[in-house]
């Protein structure tokens, strides 16, 4: 070793020694990332093997694209893809505009106390778990529960219905419970965007004789459009995902043909039936498509905002 490289090594070690506490703070995190993120990433390799539990991810023999081919021939898997697209699409149509409208309406409220009250109450459902949500739904929609009572008294129903056990009630229940749980919380972003609109724009419009509706439609709405666009693009790119907790909990023998989405199917196949490799393959196929959707969404977002706003 030459003197030069020796002194370089020495310098390197000295620098490292000087910042040993910083390194000690960072390195556990990196080790954690390797153990909890990178090893599972490597574990995707079992999609190309016949994995049996208890083995490490490495060292299995490869079976090629067997599981991917099986995926395309599996009518339940195709049904899960279809279910996912259908539910995501309906949820998008209902739950995407709702918080925007809610925020616009709240913005029209002049009494600060009333506005604060409605806001506070609307955020509350966001903080309960899906297990509790499932419990609430089960209580409300029970055959002898309040909804049945009210509908009967209003003369809408002749006899009580077990809503959660009906296949045709699944989508309305899933969509409305998502809406109830999330509409208040999602409106926060839009309310924040609205509060950034300069007040003098409203004043100028008012002096020019713009009505309240005109101010809302021509000042507030265009001002929050950038936020709306980004949220919409993000929502569309997530269309192959589903609310796993919700679907897993609300799924039962009666509604499984509608309720089982890709996420739940992966769980059913992988962890309940024990077809680990097959489930990993299904999930990998989904992830690849989702990744390209997100990439396309990012491009679109940059294009819409003339290069100013990417998603990342």
């Amino acid at each position: 070793m030459t003197d030069h490289s020796k002194s370089k090594t020495k310098l390197f070690l000295k620098k490292l020694l000087n910042q040993r506490w910083l390194q000690i703070m960072v390195i556990p995190g990196i080790i954690w990332l390797v153990i909890f993120c990178y090893i599972p990433m490597y574990g995707i390799i079992i999609a190309f093997q016949d994995y049996t539990p208890g083995n490490p991810f490495w060292g299995g023999s490869f079976v090629g694209f067997k599981h991917f081919i099986a995926f395309f021939n599996d009518k339940y898997a195709i049904q899960a893809v279809w279910n996912t697209l259908r539910i995501s699409f309906i949820k998008l149509i209902v739950t995407f505009p709702a918080p925007i409208i809610f925020a616009l309406l709240l913005n029209e409220v002049t009494s600060t106390r009333f506005k604060k009250l409605v806001q506070s109450v609307s955020y509350l459902p966001y903080f309960i778990s899906w297990v509790v949500m499932w419990g609430l739904l089960y209580a409300l929609l029970n055959i002898n529960g309040p909804l049945n009572t009210v509908l009967e008294e209003l003369g809408i129903l002749d006899e009580h219905i077990a809503f959660l056990a009906r296949v045709d009630a699944f989508i309305p229940i899933a969509v409305l419970s998502d809406l109830w749980k999330g509409v208040g919380w999602s409106s926060i972003l839009y309310l924040a965007a609205i509060s950034n609109v300069p007040q003098d724009m409203y004043e100028a419009a008012y002096i020019d004789g713009a009505s309240r509706l005109q101010r809302c439609l021509h000042i507030t709405l265009p001002s929050i459009m950038p936020t709306v666009t980004i949220m919409l693009i993000l929502a569309v790119s997530g269309i192959l995902g589903s609310n796993f907790d919700q679907h897993l909990l609300l799924q039962n023998a009666n509604n499984v043909s509608v309720a089982r989405t890709i996420d739940v199917y992966v769980y059913n196949m992988g962890l309940q039936t024990g077809r680990y490799s097959y489930a990993t393959a299904v999930n990998l196929a989904r992830s690849i498509v989702s990744f390209f959707l997100l990439y396309a969404a990012d491009r679109l977002s940059r294009w819409v905002s003339h290069g100013e706003r990417g998603l990342f």
């Binding site: 960072v26 574990g43 994995y51 992966v266 990993t280």
Partner: peptide
Amino acid sequence: YFNLCIITMFFSGGMIPGVLNIF
């Protein structure tokens, strides 16, 4: 270090390898 962190925001092993890993 930082790149190792960021990559995990975009890629993950998904449910099955993650669960098997924990066990």
